[in-house]
Amino acid sequence: MKTTQNILKHIRSLVPADRKVRIMNVCGSHEHTIAFSGMRTLLPESLEIIPGPGCPVCVCPESDIINAISLSTRDDVILVTYGDMLRVPSKEGSIRSRGRNYRMITSPSEAVALARSNPDKKIVFFSIGFETTTAPTAAILETGVPDNLFILSSHRLTPTIMEVLVKDQEIGIDGFIAPGHVSAIVGANAWNVFSEQYGIPTVVAGFEAESLMLGITEILIQLKRGMASTGNVYAGVVRPEGNVQARAIMDRYFEVADVNWRGIGHIPASGLELRDAHAMKDARKVFGLPEIKESHIPGCLCGTIVLGKAYPSACGLFKKACTPKTPKGPCMVSMEGSCNIWFKAGSA
Protein backbone atom coordinates (compact mmCIF):
# COMPACT_ATOMS: atom_id res chain seq x y z
CA MET A 1 0.00 0.00 0.00
CA LYS A 2 2.85 2.36 0.90
CA THR A 3 4.65 1.55 -2.37
CA THR A 4 1.40 2.17 -4.23
CA GLN A 5 0.97 5.55 -2.59
CA ASN A 6 4.55 6.48 -3.45
CA ILE A 7 4.09 5.52 -7.09
CA LEU A 8 0.86 7.53 -7.21
CA LYS A 9 2.60 10.55 -5.72
CA HIS A 10 5.30 10.23 -8.34
CA ILE A 11 2.69 9.96 -11.12
CA ARG A 12 0.90 13.10 -9.89
CA SER A 13 4.17 15.04 -9.85
CA LEU A 14 4.95 14.02 -13.42
CA VAL A 15 1.64 14.86 -15.08
CA PRO A 16 1.91 18.19 -16.92
CA ALA A 17 -0.48 20.86 -15.65
CA ASP A 18 -1.15 22.48 -18.99
CA ARG A 19 -2.32 19.59 -21.15
CA LYS A 20 -3.95 16.16 -21.25
CA VAL A 21 -1.81 13.05 -21.44
CA ARG A 22 -3.37 10.06 -23.17
CA ILE A 23 -1.89 6.65 -22.51
CA MET A 24 -3.40 3.62 -24.19
CA ASN A 25 -3.39 0.01 -23.04
CA VAL A 26 -3.94 -2.65 -25.67
CA CYS A 27 -4.66 -5.67 -23.52
CA GLY A 28 -7.96 -6.78 -21.99
CA SER A 29 -6.22 -8.12 -18.90
CA HIS A 30 -4.52 -4.74 -18.35
CA GLU A 31 -7.88 -2.98 -18.64
CA HIS A 32 -9.34 -5.52 -16.22
CA THR A 33 -6.75 -4.67 -13.57
CA ILE A 34 -7.15 -0.93 -14.18
CA ALA A 35 -10.93 -1.03 -13.89
CA PHE A 36 -11.16 -3.48 -10.99
CA SER A 37 -8.50 -1.69 -8.95
CA GLY A 38 -10.34 1.60 -9.35
CA MET A 39 -7.06 3.06 -10.61
CA ARG A 40 -8.70 5.81 -12.63
CA THR A 41 -10.23 7.27 -9.45
CA LEU A 42 -6.70 7.80 -8.11
CA LEU A 43 -5.11 9.40 -11.17
CA PRO A 44 -5.14 13.13 -11.98
CA GLU A 45 -7.95 14.13 -14.31
CA SER A 46 -5.56 15.27 -17.01
CA LEU A 47 -4.14 11.75 -17.28
CA GLU A 48 -6.33 9.49 -19.39
CA ILE A 49 -5.81 5.74 -19.51
CA ILE A 50 -7.62 4.59 -22.63
CA PRO A 51 -8.55 0.98 -23.33
CA GLY A 52 -7.57 0.14 -26.92
CA PRO A 53 -7.91 -2.95 -29.10
CA GLY A 54 -6.99 -5.48 -26.41
CA CYS A 55 -9.76 -7.97 -27.00
CA PRO A 56 -9.34 -10.47 -29.84
CA VAL A 57 -12.95 -11.60 -29.51
CA CYS A 58 -14.13 -8.04 -30.15
CA VAL A 59 -12.25 -7.61 -33.41
CA CYS A 60 -12.94 -11.05 -34.89
CA PRO A 61 -14.80 -10.40 -38.16
CA GLU A 62 -18.50 -11.07 -38.31
CA SER A 63 -17.86 -12.98 -41.53
CA ASP A 64 -15.79 -15.59 -39.67
CA ILE A 65 -18.49 -15.97 -37.01
CA ILE A 66 -21.19 -16.52 -39.62
CA ASN A 67 -18.96 -19.04 -41.41
CA ALA A 68 -18.37 -20.81 -38.09
CA ILE A 69 -22.12 -20.96 -37.42
CA SER A 70 -22.77 -22.42 -40.86
CA LEU A 71 -19.94 -24.98 -40.50
CA SER A 72 -21.44 -26.12 -37.20
CA THR A 73 -24.76 -26.86 -38.89
CA ARG A 74 -23.14 -29.45 -41.17
CA ASP A 75 -23.68 -33.06 -40.11
CA ASP A 76 -20.06 -33.99 -40.81
CA VAL A 77 -18.52 -31.14 -38.80
CA ILE A 78 -17.87 -30.39 -35.12
CA LEU A 79 -16.82 -26.78 -34.63
CA VAL A 80 -14.61 -26.06 -31.63
CA THR A 81 -13.54 -22.69 -30.26
CA TYR A 82 -12.86 -20.71 -27.10
CA GLY A 83 -15.83 -20.10 -24.79
CA ASP A 84 -16.35 -16.40 -25.46
CA MET A 85 -16.60 -16.95 -29.23
CA LEU A 86 -19.77 -19.00 -28.74
CA ARG A 87 -21.65 -15.93 -27.54
CA VAL A 88 -20.45 -13.22 -29.93
CA PRO A 89 -23.44 -11.75 -31.79
CA SER A 90 -23.63 -11.49 -35.58
CA LYS A 91 -26.47 -10.70 -37.96
CA GLU A 92 -27.03 -14.47 -38.10
CA GLY A 93 -27.05 -14.84 -34.30
CA SER A 94 -24.28 -16.42 -32.22
CA ILE A 95 -22.70 -19.85 -32.49
CA ARG A 96 -24.53 -20.82 -29.32
CA SER A 97 -27.92 -19.59 -30.47
CA ARG A 98 -27.79 -20.67 -34.11
CA GLY A 99 -25.05 -23.28 -34.34
CA ARG A 100 -25.64 -27.01 -33.99
CA ASN A 101 -22.48 -29.12 -33.60
CA TYR A 102 -20.07 -27.08 -31.55
CA ARG A 103 -17.92 -27.52 -28.45
CA MET A 104 -16.08 -25.14 -26.19
CA ILE A 105 -12.40 -25.79 -25.63
CA THR A 106 -9.88 -24.13 -23.35
CA SER A 107 -6.74 -25.17 -25.24
CA PRO A 108 -5.92 -26.33 -28.79
CA SER A 109 -4.81 -29.74 -27.52
CA GLU A 110 -8.47 -30.46 -26.73
CA ALA A 111 -9.27 -29.99 -30.42
CA VAL A 112 -6.64 -32.60 -31.27
CA ALA A 113 -8.08 -35.04 -28.71
CA LEU A 114 -11.59 -34.48 -30.07
CA ALA A 115 -10.41 -35.14 -33.64
CA ARG A 116 -8.79 -38.41 -32.52
CA SER A 117 -11.91 -39.59 -30.71
CA ASN A 118 -14.21 -38.63 -33.62
CA PRO A 119 -12.42 -40.00 -36.70
CA ASP A 120 -15.64 -39.94 -38.76
CA LYS A 121 -16.15 -36.19 -38.24
CA LYS A 122 -14.32 -33.13 -39.48
CA ILE A 123 -13.19 -31.05 -36.52
CA VAL A 124 -12.88 -27.34 -37.36
CA PHE A 125 -10.92 -25.33 -34.82
CA PHE A 126 -12.03 -21.69 -35.02
CA SER A 127 -8.71 -20.33 -33.78
CA ILE A 128 -8.75 -16.66 -32.86
CA GLY A 129 -6.61 -14.22 -30.94
CA PHE A 130 -3.42 -12.24 -30.95
CA GLU A 131 0.11 -13.66 -30.84
CA THR A 132 -0.54 -15.36 -27.47
CA THR A 133 -3.11 -17.78 -28.88
CA THR A 134 -1.42 -18.16 -32.26
CA ALA A 135 1.59 -19.81 -30.64
CA PRO A 136 -0.31 -22.76 -29.11
CA THR A 137 -2.21 -23.34 -32.37
CA ALA A 138 1.09 -23.43 -34.27
CA ALA A 139 2.41 -25.80 -31.61
CA ILE A 140 -0.27 -28.45 -32.23
CA LEU A 141 0.41 -28.24 -35.98
CA GLU A 142 4.12 -28.68 -35.26
CA THR A 143 3.57 -31.79 -33.13
CA GLY A 144 1.18 -33.24 -35.69
CA VAL A 145 -2.61 -33.28 -35.90
CA PRO A 146 -5.01 -35.89 -37.32
CA ASP A 147 -6.14 -35.50 -40.96
CA ASN A 148 -9.68 -34.64 -39.83
CA LEU A 149 -8.66 -31.47 -37.97
CA PHE A 150 -8.92 -28.13 -39.80
CA ILE A 151 -8.08 -24.58 -38.73
CA LEU A 152 -10.28 -21.53 -39.30
CA SER A 153 -7.63 -18.91 -38.56
CA SER A 154 -8.77 -15.52 -37.33
CA HIS A 155 -5.49 -14.47 -35.77
CA ARG A 156 -4.53 -10.83 -35.58
CA LEU A 157 -1.25 -8.96 -35.07
CA THR A 158 -0.96 -6.48 -32.20
CA PRO A 159 1.91 -4.28 -33.46
CA THR A 160 0.10 -3.68 -36.77
CA ILE A 161 -3.12 -2.42 -35.21
CA MET A 162 -1.13 -0.23 -32.82
CA GLU A 163 0.55 1.38 -35.80
CA VAL A 164 -2.86 2.09 -37.32
CA LEU A 165 -3.88 3.83 -34.08
CA VAL A 166 -0.72 5.91 -33.95
CA LYS A 167 -1.38 7.26 -37.44
CA ASP A 168 -4.95 8.23 -36.50
CA GLN A 169 -4.68 11.88 -35.38
CA GLU A 170 -8.12 11.79 -33.83
CA ILE A 171 -6.94 9.44 -31.09
CA GLY A 172 -3.75 11.30 -30.24
CA ILE A 173 -1.76 8.76 -28.24
CA ASP A 174 1.08 10.02 -26.01
CA GLY A 175 2.22 6.62 -24.80
CA PHE A 176 1.50 2.90 -24.99
CA ILE A 177 1.37 0.34 -22.22
CA ALA A 178 2.42 -2.70 -24.22
CA PRO A 179 0.64 -5.99 -23.50
CA GLY A 180 2.46 -8.39 -21.15
CA HIS A 181 1.50 -11.75 -22.64
CA VAL A 182 1.86 -10.68 -26.27
CA SER A 183 5.26 -9.20 -25.44
CA ALA A 184 6.39 -12.52 -24.01
CA ILE A 185 6.02 -13.91 -27.55
CA VAL A 186 6.98 -10.97 -29.79
CA GLY A 187 9.60 -9.52 -27.41
CA ALA A 188 9.95 -6.00 -26.04
CA ASN A 189 12.00 -5.09 -29.14
CA ALA A 190 8.88 -5.49 -31.27
CA TRP A 191 7.66 -2.13 -29.90
CA ASN A 192 10.82 -0.20 -30.84
CA VAL A 193 9.06 1.05 -33.95
CA PHE A 194 6.81 3.29 -31.82
CA SER A 195 9.60 5.15 -30.07
CA GLU A 196 11.95 5.20 -33.03
CA GLN A 197 9.54 6.11 -35.83
CA TYR A 198 6.74 7.91 -34.01
CA GLY A 199 8.41 9.20 -30.84
CA ILE A 200 5.89 7.45 -28.60
CA PRO A 201 7.14 6.02 -25.30
CA THR A 202 6.07 2.36 -25.04
CA VAL A 203 6.44 0.35 -21.86
CA VAL A 204 5.73 -3.35 -21.33
CA ALA A 205 3.87 -3.91 -18.05
CA GLY A 206 2.68 -6.88 -16.02
CA PHE A 207 -0.79 -7.49 -14.68
CA GLU A 208 -0.63 -6.22 -11.09
CA ALA A 209 -1.86 -2.70 -10.45
CA GLU A 210 1.60 -1.71 -9.20
CA SER A 211 3.26 -2.96 -12.37
CA LEU A 212 0.84 -0.96 -14.52
CA MET A 213 1.39 2.15 -12.44
CA LEU A 214 5.15 1.71 -12.79
CA GLY A 215 4.65 1.46 -16.55
CA ILE A 216 2.60 4.66 -16.53
CA THR A 217 5.31 6.35 -14.42
CA GLU A 218 8.02 5.41 -16.90
CA ILE A 219 5.98 6.76 -19.83
CA LEU A 220 5.43 10.04 -17.96
CA ILE A 221 9.15 10.34 -17.16
CA GLN A 222 9.99 9.88 -20.84
CA LEU A 223 7.39 12.45 -21.86
CA LYS A 224 8.75 14.94 -19.34
CA ARG A 225 12.27 14.48 -20.66
CA GLY A 226 11.03 14.79 -24.22
CA MET A 227 12.39 11.39 -25.17
CA ALA A 228 10.92 8.08 -26.28
CA SER A 229 12.16 4.53 -25.88
CA THR A 230 10.88 1.03 -25.23
CA GLY A 231 10.64 0.29 -21.53
CA ASN A 232 9.96 -2.98 -19.76
CA VAL A 233 8.74 -3.21 -16.17
CA TYR A 234 7.79 -6.86 -16.72
CA ALA A 235 11.34 -8.01 -17.43
CA GLY A 236 11.01 -11.15 -15.30
CA VAL A 237 8.67 -12.55 -17.97
CA VAL A 238 9.33 -10.54 -21.13
CA ARG A 239 12.72 -10.72 -22.84
CA PRO A 240 13.89 -8.18 -25.43
CA GLU A 241 13.86 -10.83 -28.15
CA GLY A 242 10.70 -12.58 -26.90
CA ASN A 243 10.13 -16.28 -27.46
CA VAL A 244 12.22 -16.91 -30.56
CA GLN A 245 11.34 -20.58 -30.79
CA ALA A 246 7.58 -19.96 -30.60
CA ARG A 247 7.85 -17.31 -33.32
CA ALA A 248 9.82 -19.69 -35.56
CA ILE A 249 7.07 -22.30 -35.24
CA MET A 250 4.35 -19.70 -35.89
CA ASP A 251 6.23 -18.59 -38.97
CA ARG A 252 6.42 -22.14 -40.27
CA TYR A 253 2.62 -22.45 -40.40
CA PHE A 254 1.25 -18.91 -40.69
CA GLU A 255 1.86 -16.02 -43.07
CA VAL A 256 0.90 -12.38 -42.75
CA ALA A 257 -2.32 -11.51 -44.61
CA ASP A 258 -4.56 -8.51 -45.33
CA VAL A 259 -7.62 -9.03 -43.15
CA ASN A 260 -10.75 -7.38 -41.75
CA TRP A 261 -11.14 -6.23 -38.16
CA ARG A 262 -14.68 -6.05 -36.87
CA GLY A 263 -15.91 -2.49 -36.55
CA ILE A 264 -12.61 -1.17 -37.91
CA GLY A 265 -12.34 -2.50 -41.45
CA HIS A 266 -9.70 -3.83 -43.79
CA ILE A 267 -6.10 -3.50 -42.58
CA PRO A 268 -3.20 -4.64 -44.76
CA ALA A 269 -0.73 -7.12 -43.25
CA SER A 270 -2.58 -7.30 -39.93
CA GLY A 271 -3.62 -10.95 -39.68
CA LEU A 272 -2.32 -14.47 -39.99
CA GLU A 273 -3.56 -17.16 -42.36
CA LEU A 274 -2.20 -20.66 -42.86
CA ARG A 275 0.57 -20.88 -45.46
CA ASP A 276 -0.24 -22.45 -48.84
CA ALA A 277 1.88 -25.45 -47.90
CA HIS A 278 -0.75 -26.22 -45.24
CA ALA A 279 -3.80 -25.49 -47.40
CA MET A 280 -5.20 -28.95 -46.66
CA LYS A 281 -5.59 -27.82 -43.01
CA ASP A 282 -7.11 -24.45 -43.90
CA ALA A 283 -10.87 -24.50 -43.29
CA ARG A 284 -11.35 -21.45 -45.54
CA LYS A 285 -9.96 -23.37 -48.50
CA VAL A 286 -11.17 -26.89 -47.67
CA PHE A 287 -14.78 -25.75 -47.14
CA GLY A 288 -14.67 -22.84 -49.64
CA LEU A 289 -15.86 -20.30 -47.05
CA PRO A 290 -17.20 -17.04 -48.54
CA GLU A 291 -16.33 -13.52 -47.36
CA ILE A 292 -19.55 -12.03 -45.98
CA LYS A 293 -20.08 -8.28 -45.85
CA GLU A 294 -20.16 -6.91 -42.31
CA SER A 295 -23.42 -5.46 -41.01
CA HIS A 296 -23.67 -2.52 -38.63
CA ILE A 297 -25.31 -3.04 -35.25
CA PRO A 298 -27.67 -0.05 -34.76
CA GLY A 299 -26.46 2.19 -31.94
CA CYS A 300 -23.41 0.04 -31.16
CA LEU A 301 -20.13 1.91 -30.62
CA CYS A 302 -17.87 -1.16 -30.38
CA GLY A 303 -15.79 -0.16 -33.41
CA THR A 304 -15.16 3.30 -31.96
CA ILE A 305 -14.50 1.93 -28.46
CA VAL A 306 -11.99 -0.64 -29.71
CA LEU A 307 -10.04 2.18 -31.36
CA GLY A 308 -9.97 4.15 -28.12
CA LYS A 309 -12.10 6.96 -29.60
CA ALA A 310 -14.87 6.53 -27.03
CA TYR A 311 -15.28 5.00 -23.58
CA PRO A 312 -17.91 2.27 -23.11
CA SER A 313 -19.99 4.69 -21.02
CA ALA A 314 -20.39 6.90 -24.11
CA CYS A 315 -22.45 4.21 -25.87
CA GLY A 316 -26.21 4.66 -25.65
CA LEU A 317 -26.71 0.89 -25.41
CA PHE A 318 -24.20 0.39 -22.56
CA LYS A 319 -25.86 -1.07 -19.43
CA LYS A 320 -29.27 -0.53 -21.05
CA ALA A 321 -30.00 -2.65 -24.11
CA CYS A 322 -26.49 -4.10 -24.01
CA THR A 323 -25.40 -6.14 -20.97
CA PRO A 324 -23.26 -9.27 -20.54
CA LYS A 325 -26.49 -11.25 -20.50
CA THR A 326 -27.83 -9.67 -23.69
CA PRO A 327 -24.75 -8.40 -25.54
CA LYS A 328 -25.53 -6.34 -28.63
CA GLY A 329 -21.92 -5.76 -29.61
CA PRO A 330 -18.81 -7.92 -29.32
CA CYS A 331 -17.12 -5.74 -26.64
CA MET A 332 -19.79 -6.75 -24.11
CA VAL A 333 -19.22 -10.49 -24.59
CA SER A 334 -15.70 -11.33 -23.65
CA MET A 335 -14.13 -10.80 -20.25
CA GLU A 336 -11.41 -8.99 -22.20
CA GLY A 337 -13.85 -6.61 -23.88
CA SER A 338 -13.85 -3.05 -22.53
CA CYS A 339 -17.65 -2.88 -22.22
CA ASN A 340 -17.84 -6.18 -20.34
CA ILE A 341 -15.05 -5.09 -17.98
CA TRP A 342 -16.61 -1.69 -17.35
CA PHE A 343 -20.00 -3.29 -16.74
CA LYS A 344 -18.65 -5.75 -14.18
CA ALA A 345 -16.25 -3.41 -12.44
CA GLY A 346 -19.02 -0.89 -11.89
CA SER A 347 -18.50 2.83 -12.01
CA ALA A 348 -16.75 4.75 -9.29
Binding site: M1, F36, S37, G38, E210, T323, A348
Partner: peptide, 13 residues
Protein backbone atom coordinates in the same frame (compact mmCIF):
# COMPACT_ATOMS: atom_id res chain seq x y z
CA UNK B 1 -9.67 -1.32 -3.61
CA UNK B 2 -6.29 -2.54 -2.45
CA UNK B 3 -4.49 0.34 -4.07
CA UNK B 4 -6.91 2.82 -2.49
CA UNK B 5 -9.10 3.29 -5.56
CA UNK B 6 -12.83 2.99 -5.52
CA UNK B 7 -15.49 1.17 -7.51
CA UNK B 8 -19.17 0.47 -7.12
CA UNK B 9 -20.49 -3.02 -6.48
CA UNK B 10 -23.75 -3.57 -8.30
CA UNK B 11 -26.25 -6.35 -8.73
CA UNK B 12 -24.98 -8.45 -11.61
CA UNK B 13 -27.73 -9.78 -13.81
Amino acid sequence: TKIGGERALEMLE
